[in-house]
Simulated assay, not measured.
Amino acid sequence: MGLFSKPEVVGLQVGDADRARVDALERRVAALEAQLAGLLAAGTPSGAPAADAPVAVEPWLAEVQELRRAGKTIHAIKVYREHTGVGLKQAKDAVEAMPG
């Protein structure tokens, strides 16, 4: 099923399928935002932050990044999952992509 194709979910009402699809999209967007924030936090290749790079908007994301830098990756993944609702693998990949 593509991003904008009709849901083909067996056993769900149309409203349920729409809600499930919106929930899945929200989780994907949250994961992408976190990955982008991690990349922006990494700064330029020289290590200096990019001049026009925005600061992480969500305070919980700053907490996740700090936990990651402190070597508390498992706790960082837990916080990330609590705020995004993504699965363990997605959260692990997003947190590990952040600068450490």
Rank of each mutant, 00 (worst) to 15 (best):
Q13P: 11
Q13K: 15
V14Y: 10
G15F: 03
D16C: 02
A17M: 05
A17F: 11
A17V: 13
A17N: 01
D18A: 15
R19Y: 00
R19E: 01
R19F: 01
A20C: 08
R21N: 07
V22S: 02
V22Q: 12
V22T: 09
D23T: 15
A24E: 15
A24Q: 15
A24M: 15
A24V: 04
L25K: 06
E26S: 07
R27P: 02
R27H: 02
R28V: 09
V29M: 03
V29T: 07
V29R: 03
V29F: 00
A31W: 04
A31S: 13
E33V: 07
A34L: 10
Q35I: 14
Q35D: 12
L36Y: 05
A37V: 00
A37T: 08
G38T: 10
G38I: 14
G38D: 01
L39N: 13
L40E: 03
A41T: 08
A41N: 06
A42Y: 02
G43L: 03
G43K: 01
G43S: 01
G43V: 00
P45H: 04
S46V: 05
G47M: 01
A48V: 09
A48C: 10
A48W: 06
P49S: 06
A50F: 14
A51Q: 06
A53Q: 11
V55Y: 11
A56F: 12
A56C: 09
A56M: 06
V57A: 04
E58I: 01
P59M: 05
W60E: 00
W60H: 04
L61D: 08
L61V: 04
A62E: 05
A62I: 02
E63M: 00
E63P: 08
E63D: 03
V64R: 06
Q65W: 14
E66Y: 05
L67W: 04
R68W: 00
R68G: 04
R68P: 09
R69D: 08
A70F: 10
G71V: 15
I74G: 05
H75Q: 14
H75T: 14
A76S: 06
A76D: 12
A76H: 05
A76W: 15
I77H: 11
K78M: 08
V79W: 11
V79Q: 08
Y80H: 12
R81T: 02
